[in-house]
Write a protein that binds this DNA or RNA. Structure first.
Lengths: 216, 216
DNA sequence: AAGTTCGGTGTACGTTCGTACACTGAAAGC
DNA sequence: GCTTTCAGTGTACGAACGTACACCGAACTT
């Protein structure tokens, strides 16, 4: 049973703000943010168009808020991947990472979908925000890689380059998983194939890394 | 001096069609195709809006035409990369490939820009067309890789996986080159850094490939 | 209890959009 | 030469867009 005490003003505002973010995310499922109109969002939320401005000054700044929000769940995923050494074999790291990625893509479809779209097509400021967040991911990965035997003797530059490669491959994997989800009839087998490919690719890259000689 | 003979009807039609494609491509430089209106294109070309329908039945089918056109130049690039063995060392292959990529991105900016945008944000049919073309590229790369010592003993599946990885990395490199071109003040050094990264990544992947044991 | 703040309303505007329809005039076909 | 074809014209419409402006009423402040 819900307590029926009257809503405070900030609560109500926050609730509407959430509704706007959710509505925008839903509308972004099948077209880019630039193609979403203020009026559509307002109608979806159930407010009058001009009320939108009480929360965001433009669709673009709504986009920036959605980027922040999306990367909260992404960071949660990364924390999940690197949770302290339950597994230490290379195979274990690879399998665990890919499985975690799959789980989070399923769980936060619309966020990943939004990022994948706007990464290439959004307004400049949104693209830059996404690029920046991905760069942070690469840096975090680089510091993790630096603890592995082999890469621990590399130059910082080589570490950067390797994590860029890995993150790129994982972003691509996520995008493939997303588009496989658009056709639910054969989704399971498609997901299996995509994750298997991702696992193999990670292994190939790691083998390359183990045989790499960093020369400064 | 231009010969002044009267234009034939098909010539004139083709000329207008080209103008429409060029105008659309230009308008796509700073927003996605879905956000480009039929009227904008028509105004840019200098025809009345309804005349657009004499050439395309919708913006979407215009998009498909642009995909075709863009991949003509991309295929030209790939032919260029694989031109018969002037160089045979791994380093030679890598350096040559990356340099060719850079050259073609510069030369066909707007085409690459269009593909990069619509690959993630375009209408479904456009996204599928692009995905299909990229898959063709991966297949061609796979048959090339199959001639290399090492990969020549691989399973078809492993070859597919490796070329998917390489193509993904190259697509990402192209996208980075494109966004570096948006800020002309430091473009040269940015391009140098990006291509250097791409070279290193290709080498890392190839080293992984040389040490890979394909087990069926 | 009186006054202020502010999320949400309702109307109203000028613009731009896609597209329907009837048309024109020059090249193509006979 | 007369007819047909068809790329391009011009007008006209309803719908959707962003946004300006005056307003309301309930939650807050004092």
């Amino acid at each position: 049973m819900t307590t029926n005490r009257p809503e405070t003003r900030v609560e109500r505002k926050e609730r509407t703000r959430r509704a706007i973010l959710d509505a925008a995310l839903a509308l972004c499922e099948d077209s880019s943010l630039a193609a979403v109109s203020l009026r559509q969002v307002a109608k979806e939320v159930g407010i009058v168009p001009t009320a939108f401005y009480r929360h965001f000054e433009s669709i673009e700044s709504l986009g920036l808020a959605l980027v922040d929000e999306s990367f909260v769940s992404l960071r949660a995923m990364l924390r999940d991947v690197r949770r302290p050494g339950v597994v230490t074999t290379f195979s274990g790291i690879v399998d665990g990472s890919v499985e975690t990625l799959l789980r989070h893509v399923r769980q936060h479809r619309s966020h990943f979908l939004f990022i994948a779209r706007e990464r290439g097509a959004g307004p400049l400021s949104v693209r830059e925000a996404i690029r920046h967040e991905i760069e942070l991911c690469e840096r975090e990965l680089a510091t993790d890689l630096a603890r592995l035997p082999g890469p621990d003797k590399w130059t910082a530059e080589d570490l950067r380059v390797l994590s860029n490669l890995i993150v790129t491959a994982m972003v691509s994997t996520a995008e493939q998983l997303l588009s496989s989800g658009a056709r639910p009839e054969a989704q399971q087998s498609a997901e299996k194939e995509i994750t298997e490919t991702a696992r193999t690719q990670l292994r190939m890259v790691l083998i390359g890394a183990l045989n790499w000689e960093s020369r400064p």
